[in-house]
Simulated scan of single mutants.
Amino acid sequence: MGALAKVPTWLMLALAILAEVSATSSMKLTEGFTRPLPTVLVLCGYALSLSLLAQVVQRVDVGVVYAIWCGVGMAAVALVGVLVYGEAVTLAKVGGIVLIVAGTLMLSLAMRGH
């Protein structure tokens, strides 16, 4: 399996999420992919995230991995939007994040029951 064989699965998933959240959150800095350095950093973040994700799905059901990656990623990006970019906190946004987290947990639990 190579160099990542001894890296704990959930650490790789956490790093994949961190890389994806960093890339997505930094996308505004690319100004529509017109700024080279931020664009390269965003693309590298996505490449790292997907590379790690490809390793994780070799060990854990793809549905569970994707639910966690998407759910945690969406909630984290929404939080970054509020904290870093000053986006509004609305009841709908908070409710959406709660539903994302609940859906992620439900899917993860359902997939583990298989």
Rank of each mutant, 00 (worst) to 15 (best):
residue 1 M to R: 10
residue 2 G to H: 09
residue 2 G to Y: 08
residue 2 G to C: 10
residue 2 G to V: 11
residue 5 A to M: 07
residue 5 A to S: 15
residue 6 K to V: 07
residue 6 K to M: 07
residue 9 T to A: 09
residue 10 W to E: 08
residue 11 L to Y: 00
residue 14 A to W: 06
residue 14 A to C: 07
residue 15 L to I: 01
residue 16 A to F: 02
residue 16 A to C: 10
residue 16 A to I: 05
residue 17 I to R: 00
residue 17 I to P: 07
residue 18 L to I: 13
residue 22 S to N: 06
residue 22 S to V: 12
residue 23 A to C: 11
residue 23 A to R: 03
residue 23 A to L: 03
residue 25 S to N: 11
residue 25 S to D: 13
residue 25 S to G: 15
residue 27 M to N: 10
residue 28 K to V: 10
residue 29 L to F: 11
residue 29 L to C: 05
residue 30 T to L: 13
residue 30 T to C: 09
residue 31 E to I: 10
residue 31 E to G: 12
residue 31 E to A: 14
residue 32 G to R: 07
residue 33 F to C: 12
residue 34 T to C: 12
residue 35 R to W: 03
residue 37 L to R: 07
residue 38 P to F: 14
residue 39 T to W: 04
residue 42 V to T: 13
residue 44 C to I: 15
residue 45 G to R: 07
residue 46 Y to A: 02
residue 47 A to G: 06
residue 49 S to H: 04
residue 50 L to E: 05
residue 50 L to M: 10
residue 51 S to E: 00
residue 51 S to A: 13
residue 52 L to R: 01
residue 55 Q to V: 04
residue 55 Q to A: 05
residue 56 V to W: 00
residue 57 V to L: 03
residue 57 V to N: 03
residue 57 V to D: 00
residue 59 R to Y: 02
residue 59 R to G: 02
residue 60 V to Q: 04
residue 61 D to L: 00
residue 61 D to F: 00
residue 61 D to I: 00
residue 62 V to A: 09
residue 62 V to Q: 06
residue 63 G to W: 01
residue 63 G to S: 11
residue 63 G to V: 02
residue 65 V to W: 00
residue 65 V to I: 06
residue 66 Y to N: 02
residue 66 Y to F: 07
residue 67 A to C: 01
residue 69 W to F: 13
residue 70 C to R: 02
residue 70 C to A: 13
residue 70 C to W: 01
residue 71 G to Y: 05
residue 71 G to P: 10
residue 72 V to D: 00
residue 72 V to Y: 00
residue 73 G to Q: 04
residue 73 G to R: 04
residue 73 G to T: 03
residue 76 A to W: 04
residue 76 A to L: 14
residue 76 A to I: 02
residue 76 A to E: 08
residue 78 A to V: 11
residue 79 L to F: 14
residue 80 V to S: 09
residue 80 V to P: 13
residue 83 L to N: 06
residue 85 Y to Q: 11
residue 85 Y to P: 08
residue 85 Y to T: 05
residue 86 G to C: 07
residue 86 G to T: 06
residue 87 E to A: 10
residue 87 E to G: 06
residue 89 V to M: 07
residue 92 A to Q: 15
residue 93 K to C: 06
residue 94 V to Y: 01
residue 94 V to P: 08
residue 95 G to Y: 05
residue 96 G to A: 09
residue 99 L to R: 05
residue 100 I to P: 01
residue 100 I to H: 00
residue 102 A to N: 03
residue 102 A to T: 08
residue 104 T to P: 08
residue 105 L to S: 09
residue 105 L to I: 13
residue 106 M to H: 10
residue 106 M to N: 10
residue 109 L to H: 15
residue 109 L to F: 13
residue 109 L to Y: 12
residue 110 A to S: 14
residue 111 M to T: 15
residue 111 M to N: 12
residue 111 M to A: 15
residue 113 G to C: 09
residue 114 H to R: 15
residue 114 H to V: 13
